[in-house]
Design a protein around this nucleic acid. Sequence first.
RNA 1: GCCGGGAUGGCGGAACUGGUAGACGCACGGGACUCAAAAUCCCGCGCUAGCAAUAGCGUGGGGGUUCGAUUCCCCCUCCCGGCACCA
Length: 883
Amino acid sequence: MQPIYSPTSIEQETQKAWDEARAFKATEVSDKPKYYCLSMFPYPSGKLHMGHVRNYTIGDVLARYHRMKGFNVMQPMGWDAFGLPAENAAIANNVAPAAWTYSNIDYMRTQLKSLGLAVDWDREIATCKPDYYKWEQWLFTKLFEKGLIYKKTAPVNWDPVDNTVLANEQVIDGRGWRSGALVEKRDIPMYFMKITAYAEELLAGLDTLQGWPEQVRTMQRNWIGKSFGAEVHFPYESGNGVLKVFTTRPDTLMGATYVAVAAEHALATEAAQGNAELAAFIEECKHGSVAEADMATMEKKGLPTGRFVTHPLNGEKLPVWVANYVLMGYGEGAVMAVPAHDERDFAFAAKYKLPIKTVIRTSAGDATPAPWQDAYAEQGVCIQSGKYDGLDFTQASDAISTDLQTKGLGAKRTQFRLRDWGISRQRYWGCPIPIIHCASCGDVPVPEKDLPVVLPEDVKIDIGSPIKKMPSFYETSCPKCGGKAERETDTMDTFVESSWYYVRFACPDSTNAMVDARGKYWLPVDQYVGGIEHAILHLLYARFFHKLMRDVGLVQCDEPFVNLLTQGMVVAPTFYRELGEGKKQYINPADVDVKLDDKGRPTGATLKTDGQPVIIGGTEKMSKSKNNGIDPQSLIDVYGADTARLFMMFAAPPDQQLEWSDAGVEGAYRFLKRIWAFACKNNRRIAEALSSRKLGRFDWDGEAWKNAAPSQKRARYQIHQYLQQANFDLDRHQFNTVVSAAMKILNALEEDEIVAVEARQGYTPCGNVHGEFICESMSILLRLLSPITPHIARALWLELGYGDDIQTANWPKADETALVQDEIELVLQVNGKLRGNMTVAKSLPKDDIEKLALENANVQKFMEGKPAKKIIVVPGKLVNVVV
RNA sequence: GCCGGGAUGGCGGAACUGGUAGACGCACGGGACUCAAAAUCCCGCGCUAGCAAUAGCGUGGGGGUUCGAUUCCCCCUCCCGGCACCA
């Protein structure tokens, strides 16, 4: 056995052995229960970042843990390979997006393998390959035929200089990131998936997802946003037609004093004709981003259209305004305004001197004078509302809805916040939308026999998508009439690929179906692991897609992911220098020396190269812009994958943010070195213990152990106590305390070295009891660590002679008999303050405990001679004397 | 702005259902080994007062419930994630 821990050779050897044994190949033939463990696949951006390492370590720990617990585990890996960065890189480096992507995949695959993941690499997929996206196109055509995909216009960010559509992240302060031109909204035709048709089911399904974090379910619930209310029709004063609005507060209808429409609303467009001021305002509304966060934070502005509508119940004439805060995409693109009971309407009315009419009695009273109070928005009893006076929220809403229905001017309605999913992208590096535009037949889906529509990979990229300028791609004939036709040149949102990849991992090589019979075996995913930033969009789209696939008969279950673990971000300190004009030069933490005072508090920092001071910034998410990323590769090269994995698991619970620390990595490495040293030292003792077990396990109920020293029994109690804690924490995915339990076990074993001498002197008739204890404890420790640090665990398992392969060993379980204790320590309190403790027999009755507590000298001291008013005994925990 | 989450020593974090706050690790201080350094090992380490025993204070801030609150309730501050074309 090597006396020094050398991770590089151990890890290379171990990974080679796994490869040769095809140790992680997953098959559908097994008598064990299946366990499909999936981590969110990476975008091949170039090289692994710490977030990847964290994500895949968590997934791998769960996969390996379940393997040892007797599951048939499948853990796959693939590449979310389409996306915007490839096009940006292509422009910057003059390479084709495909070539850039494939070379990134090759490099990152090597990196992932060096982490020692228990992945079945035979199942690897890349979403940019035609054999993958063919099935996406196939499903698209099915959904198109079913009417679940439709076409309509929607606003995009338009760069008028580059003549291109921009992603939200490419719009910086309202300007295009390359051209600097003022971005405007432009309506273009796009394909939409009818996710709203599944809104009810997506909402109801959340209640069944007991294995998901509550916060994610709440976020999705709010995102879907089911609200109850009424549709109200305001007849145009001119007499032609009605203006429809949706409101969640029909009870306040009598307080409506104006209505507001979005700038894109038909009424606004019409009113702007011959109204230059209004036309200019609508034009102004077109600028700025389409992002909701910007819409919600911008200054609320509006202009009157000069048009009026009639209040459906009291017949009053209400002005119609155009307002920049009304969203065309939500509801009807128009709202009724009740300034007295809605904060935004109140502010708007105050700004433009519109009337405010109080119609609800709230806890703030019968009036709504400025300034705005939150109480004004409360539900209450109607006042100044004619026949509705005295009714509460529910009664008034019902009565008003009924009256509207009678008049044919509205009805009760539920409304969802969720909008249909626009999937068209005017970009190149994505899955081509399989539609052919024919002048006589319209939009025709590409027939199955002609799929896939292959994206040309050998292209030059400048501004705009090359396939839009490539007749060889778009010129085609109509599958229906055979006439001249053109292919759609838009591609799909990359969220589409990531919405179903988990299905394809079950059968990545299937050529005759999107998913074959193997899908039935593996699905649903038992454990999904990924970043919390995907809590809404990706996870909702994937749930939606699953239901679409179910409804065309591809999958059987209702939900794709049974259990979900959302991991926190990896953050690191930032360092910078002021460059003037508010600009900062960020310096990588690796290039900085931090100075500490004699209590270890940071007092300043200097750049290593010039020794001059730098400013210590905040702790932020590792990113290029803050230059605080640390390359995981350098970590693996220096310390090995086990140390990297151990640090990642130990530094924070998986769902919290993880703060990077060089010193913390050193600590993890130190622990592995200590285990190695301990194993070396006890190598012979363990071997002897193992070889003496001719008849199987050592008998922990036998005579030899009964005669062991009390200190030895305490030591074994401790080990099993730690094991029990570790198992509890593993099942609740709190891996940092599992590592801490492993550390405590090693600490106890090292302390036990001294105890052992004493133990052998007086108590043990069987000389090898101590060896048995070390042998058992070490096997517990190695198995406990093997999901987290699989290389060193396997190497020591072999070296010490426990068996062929630790991953086929049973998962360790605490021995109940070791956990039995005769005496317990009770905490003593006086008036809830800690005043001492006492050790008593576990079986001692409550009365005796109270008596003993009152006799305690320290308790008496703090009772100051006063009588006990009350004594609270918490069994096994404490005694509190109240005076 | 809206939705969701978070805040505990110098730092990362622990404390399971309201019951000993600070486990485990890092950093730091002291010591051993060494010509020296590294590595390793031992001791100390919330704050304040005290030589000490010990006492008081202490889980972002304010209030409440309770014999007892990091944990439950109300209000507030700051930080982070998401907001539909980054993935």
